[in-house]
Design a protein around this nucleic acid. Structure first.
Lengths: 256, 256
DNA sequence: TAGTGGTCTAGACCACGGA
DNA sequence: CCGTGGTCTAGACCACTAG
């Protein structure tokens, strides 16, 4: 995989002079790996070179590469599989999906979500969206509304805003023909991998349009989840407002 | 610190025969460290022995001890401080507290919580509490209700259930004279450290008694947070039902 | 200056998966 | 059988803290 190609190696492993901003070698390697991922050198689901190959490429020891990969694996950006190799994480694996869809049923039975795209429009960013997505007010956004149902019960309404510049060609048709998770589509078709998301949760009274979609009475309490998602390098690439009906499901979380 | 005392060392570092349940050495060390913590050999806030001392004690290399500590530090059970030592995490440090109280104000300003204990009673475990706390129905529990206010606005009502057997002597008087966080009291006075918690979030209409305490109208949407907390070794030691008013505050969470 | 955690290396060997 | 990640060791040196 391009091991002989020209590729900005760390020449003399940079030992900054004392008391200057000190960055350990393995952090520099971590950054180089992130850059390679961002460039798309290895795609989601693919295997990256072995630790020894990477060590040769970056002119460091295998242990140092290992520590860099350890960190990225801890962030769920890479996935180690003993005996097989190290792979780029992908949202097309269900285990990843569960990290980003935190609804679980009150009574055991896990259940697949049934997704219906309600619309997909181009809009202009208002101040709030622009601030969250690090854009300018008025920049183009793609606005998607979708409805998730479990066992036929409409349970989640998501209003999703994506920078139009990153997702040219994302249309209603593309969305409806996609079967897997949305993030899987975004990474496979547009090369944008969601790596982290910050959420803010509140209890709110159901707005009229959402109550109608969910077939519930107005003002019923809903869990509102505001999400900003980030790709490599903490770049915000999605703003999402979710309304969750939590009669049969709950939002699960673990504090550590 | 008892380095010469008799203490079940790993004698011949146990290399299990092939294909049998294999546990790496550093995992065995991790378990021994957890046992020492559980025994109270090192108390919250205290420094544990250096990596080299522990290596001698357990008859392994410093690198192996280091890897065990790495894991415990990743679980926020231990805290490393370069140049000083490795310390047992304590809930009396604000940084830890924020991991377990996830409310943040909608408008910047962070604010200290003002806690009022409403009552502290002995009750018997119902089926639900018994199941969550791994007890038998009818076992003794301490039931605490408290009210947290921010800027004078009542915002959180917590109903807390603790196994009476673990917290003998926990009374209204003890609670009211405690100034810091509840978990700080529990670890300092009863030797029970909260290490992890699972939460289930729902939006609900405010029950009458809670609406009254918060001085809000009945049926107003509240965020209900059911929590089970665990100490070392995944032992459940707290069941808590929280009702959060999310007009001015939100529950923050990061997905990774 | 001494003691602690943090980094980096090189080498040996083990566990796992697949050909 | 080989190639991968995983473990363990020993040793050298760096960065940080405190006396």
């Amino acid at each position: 995989m391009d091991l002989t190609e020209s590729q900005t190696p760390i020449q003399a492993p940079v030992r900054r002079e004392q008391t200057a901003a000190f960055s350990p070698l393995y952090q520099q390697i971590r950054q180089l790996l992130l850059q390679a991922l961002e460039k798309g050198e290895w795609k989601p689901g693919e295997m990256i070179p072995s630790e020894f190959d990477l060590a040769r490429r970056f002119h460091v020891s295998q242990g140092t590469v290992r520590k860099a990969i350890d960190e990225l694996a801890g962030e769920h950006i890479l996935i180690r599989r003993q005996g097989k190799g190290t792979f780029v994480a992908t949202h097309r694996e269900p285990v990843v999906r569960f990290r980003f869809l935190r609804l679980a049923p009150s009574d055991g039975e896990t259940v697949p979500a049934d997704s219906e795209i309600l619309w997909c429009r181009k809009v202009r960013a208002n101040a709030e969206a622009a601030a969250a997505l690090e854009l300018k007010s008025g920049d183009g956004l793609i606005y998607i509304r979708r409805l998730l149902s479990f066992r036929g019960q409409p349970t989640v309404v998501d209003d999703i805003y994506l920078p139009a510049s990153l997702f040219r060609g994302l249309t209603m048709a593309v969305l409806t023909e996609n079967t897997g998770p949305l993030y899987g589509l975004l990474e496979a078709r547009f090369g944008v991998s969601m790596v982290r998301a910050d959420e803010r949760l509140r209890a709110v009274a159901a707005p009229e349009d959402i109550a109608e979609l969910m077939k519930i009475e107005r003002h019923k309490p809903l869990l509102r989840v505001d999400r900003v998602s980030y790709t490599y390098g903490d770049r915000a690439v999605e703003l999402r407002y979710g309304h969750y009906l939590t009669d049969q499901y709950f939002y699960r979380n673990t504090l550590m």
